[in-house]
């Protein structure tokens, strides 16, 4: 997956998590009925939580921080500083 997409995913992940745990979404699962002895809402929250952690794990394996690889700073977009421009011109 290209780097930028990874970063976008990393950006979205917490918001995605936020949506999962906030009303109105979480209200859908609000039920004290039992599923295998466990109330559904509990099951939902913990499963969603686990899913988010797993996603976080997957992403973090792919995301590489600048400190680890010497990531070049968008060099080609750097315009020449004024002094040099005068010299050429």
């Amino acid at each position: 997956m290209p780097r930028q997409k990874l970063r976008d995913a990393a950006f979205i992940l917490p918001f995605f998590g936020l949506i999962l745990i906030m009303p109105p979404f979480v209200d859908i699962f609000f039920s004290v009925r039992l599923l295998g002895g466990i109330p559904v809402i509990l099951l939902y929250i913990f499963c969603a939580w686990t899913a988010l952690i797993v996603l976080g794990w997957v992403l973090s394996r792919r995301l590489v921080t600048d400190a680890e690889t010497a990531e070049p700073r968008a060099p080609i977009l750097h315009p020449m500083p004024p002094e040099q421009r005068d010299a050429d011109g």
Partner: peptide
Amino acid sequence: ITIYLGPTLVFLGWWY
């Protein structure tokens, strides 16, 4: 649970 969900979200978004 909210006390632990908040930090979860922050740490999931550690990159930024």
